[in-house]
Design a protein around this nucleic acid. Structure first.
Length: 272
DNA sequence: CTGTAATCCTGCGAGC
DNA sequence: TGCTCGCAGGATTACA
């Protein structure tokens, strides 16, 4: 569910309520998340102050006085700040009570999300650096050109590969490819230099605009205050199978690329 | 190094 | 109404 714009929006909406606060209690649900929460982490976290809240790719980093928590929203994760009396259902797996009476809650229907605690920030970043390429903003042109030139994979598969570029998911890959007029199945190495640059710019533009719209809410996504995003109203390709392309009226098609549904305009986005 | 499929889960809409 | 099927914003692993 959440890609970079949604994660960025969550971080921005929870940050003011978290920084400067301290965690006075941790409650853990029974059901296991993708990465099992270690009970001993509760001891480590209890009583700690929250120093910063940030994002790297689709990951959320909550830095504490000593150590840091690393979270991922998976497909259906919701991280919100509520009141201590607020309702939590069976899908709420972590509740961090704060000194001021509010609480940070993690709710996740499908439980593809995860939360981990690291004793020090360095080890957390080592963990991320192992998995993530550069952020998609101000992406180095040479790096991007080389990344595409040396890959025979479909261009969309490269966009979705977090170790090449961090933060792009299925929605924004489709939207960026549409904007740059590139067919999702086109081998990356065959994307011309001009097109590669166009794609790099499209990714940045699409993500920036999506952040302005507070992300896309199709089904589950909510920001840190429990509000939906609006970017779904601006989708050009994603989820528009059969609908007319907003540029040329040709019906949008859907194919499978890298195991994911991929939406594109067969007229605007040519294979050759 | 590829690509593909399966895996972890729950919920929803389509079709019968 | 109730059932089954396919699909869903992600990451990781196994396997051809």
């Amino acid at each position: 569910m959440p890609e970079l714009p949604e994660v960025e929006t969550v971080v921005r909406t929870i940050r003011p309520g978290l920084v400067g606060q301290s965690i006075v209690n941790v409650r853990v649900g029974r059901k296991r998340l993708r990465v099992p929460w270690q009970r001993r982490w509760c001891q480590s976290i209890d009583g700690q102050g929250i120093v910063t809240v940030s994002r790297r790719g689709k990951w959320i980093i909550i830095e504490l006085d000593h150590g840091a928590m690393l979270g991922h929203l998976g497909m259906t994760g919701q991280l919100t700040i509520g009141t201590r009396t607020g309702k939590v259902d069976g899908h709420t797996h972590l509740v961090f009570a704060l000194f001021n009476g509010t609480q940070l809650q993690f709710r996740d229907e499908r439980r593809f999300g995860s939360w981990q605690f690291f004793e020090n920030v360095k080890s957390l970043h080592d963990y991320l650096d192992l998995r993530l390429g550069p952020e998609p903003f101000a992406l180095d042109a040479g790096y991007w050109r080389a990344a595409l030139a040396q890959s025979q994979r479909a261009i969309k598969a490269v966009l979705l590969d977090q170790s090449v570029i961090a933060g792009v998911g299925n929605i924004y890959a489709d939207e960026s490819l549409f904007a740059a007029r590139i067919h999702p199945q086109r081998p990356a190495s065959l994307v011309a230099a001009r097109q590669a640059t166009a794609l790099r710019n499209s990714v940045e533009r699409v993500l920036t605009r999506a952040i302005e719209c507070h992300g896309s809410s199709i089904r589950n996504y909510l920001d840190g205050a429990g509000n939906r995003g609006d970017y779904q109203q601006e989708f050009q390709a994603y989820g528009r199978t059969g609908a007319p392309c907003r540029r040329c009226r040709t019906a949008i098609e859907r194919v499978r690329v890298a195991g994911r549904s991929s939406h594109f305009c067969p007229q605007c986005q040519r294979m050759d």
